[in-house]
Design a protein around this nucleic acid. Structure first.
Length: 351
DNA sequence: AATACGGGGCC
DNA sequence: GGCCCAGTATT
């Protein structure tokens, strides 16, 4: 008897979340939500998810759309490789699977942007396939319940958690409907438990269905498990963003390379310093500009470094012809509806 | 195994 | 200010 899953699924049915917009029987919507929810909280995703579905009602719509439209709707969500992979994945599903997501998690995991955990979540929620997930919530719940020590990002620890997650899946049933319902409740239950009961700080063990045999609780080590990620000092970087406007008040934007920070997004040209800005813009774009007083610098925080941004306004002298196709003039409105990084949105909104 | 990759919510 | 989040791909 798998007592763990019995308690978990029962709890989910009584106390779990049942009305999130992606809790539907539709692989496209499940997949979209899973990608958006990678390293991103539910409250943040809700609005993006609604706007995205309005613009791309079906996977076919998404596959047929220009990448720029996808990036525009992803603007502000971060981890923009997700958006590029999302677009590529939609096209792959159309090309290789007739527009229909496969139900085998191993097959799903071959698609761009989908790893082992996301593949399992899609298979479980969309098709009731018996497959284990291992996301941040599950790592926390299982490392506490089993009393597993060691940073969960380390391979050996992660392998141990994967094995445990597999072993705790509800037993297969001869009734396919019952088996599918159990998998869905089990998978959603792990996520809901991690999000509402087994929280990073101050977990509410009194109402947890797993507390009776939770090793962390039995030893009072809820605060110590899972083992914290070893922290290191984040580098400080700085940049100057040239806010160049032509006679029409349009702003010069430059498309960033497909990989690296803000990959594929439109952003302001960056130069080494405010002093060399005019020379750099002349050399790179063949545009003659006049520098204005710099705007106040501000700090943008990433996971892995802090970036001090100095917005450097300038206006164009003479010819506004652009010789490179990765650059373009954007009206303020056009810029705000394009795929731009969050700090640029902040700069433009302040104009 | 370690690193790159965003941005916001929350204490 | 630090921590965390329904991780994946690359090196």
């Amino acid at each position: 008897m798998n007592d763990f899953s019995s308690r978990l699924t029962q709890w989910q049915r009584e106390h779990g979340r049942h009305h999130l917009p992606w809790q539907v029987d539709d692989a496209y919507r499940v997949w979209l939500s899973e990608i958006m929810l990678q390293q991103t909280q539910v409250t943040t995703v809700l609005d993006y998810y609604a706007r995205f579905l309005e613009r791309f009602p079906t996977l076919t719509d998404l596959a047929a759309a220009p990448l720029d439209d996808v990036l525009a709707l992803w603007s502000g969500l971060g981890y923009y490789t997700r958006a590029r992979n999302l677009h590529a994945c939609a096209q792959a599903v159309v090309r290789d699977f007739g527009g229909h997501f496969p139900s085998d998690p191993a097959l799903i995991a071959t698609l761009p942007g989908i790893g082992r955990s996301t593949a399992a979540a899609i298979a479980a929620f969309a098709y009731g396939t018996r497959a284990a997930i291992l996301d941040g919530n599950v790592k926390r719940v299982l490392s506490r319940w089993a009393g597993i020590e060691g940073f969960t990002g380390v391979k050996a620890i992660e392998n141990q958690l994967w094995e445990l997650a597999e072993s705790l899946l509800p037993e297969p049933s001869s009734d396919q409907n019952i088996a599918a319902a159990a998998i869905k409740a089990h998978t959603q239950g792990l996520m809901d438990l991690g999000a509402t009961i087994c929280t990073p700080k101050n977990p509410t063990c009194l109402t947890c269905p797993l507390s009776a045999d939770c090793q962390a609780r039995l030893s009072g080590r809820q605060a110590e498990l899972p083992t914290k990620k070893p922290k290191k000092t984040v580098p400080e970087k700085s940049t100057v963003m040239v806010l160049l406007r032509n006679a029409n008040g349009e702003i010069l934007l430059e498309r960033r390379p497909p990989t690296g920070i803000w990959g594929g997004l439109w952003s302001l040209p960056e130069v080494a310093s405010t002093l060399t800005a005019a020379t750099a813009i002349d050399q790179r774009f063949g545009l003659t500009i006049e520098i204005e007083p710099a705007l106040p610098e501000f700090v943008h925080v990433f996971t892995h470094y802090r970036l001090t941004i100095t917005p450097q306004p300038a206006y164009l002298i003479g010819n506004s012809t652009l010789r490179e196709n990765h650059t373009a003039w954007f009206s303020k409105t056009a810029a705000l509806t394009a795929g731009i990084p969050s700090p640029l949105r902040k700069i433009i909104n302040a104009l």
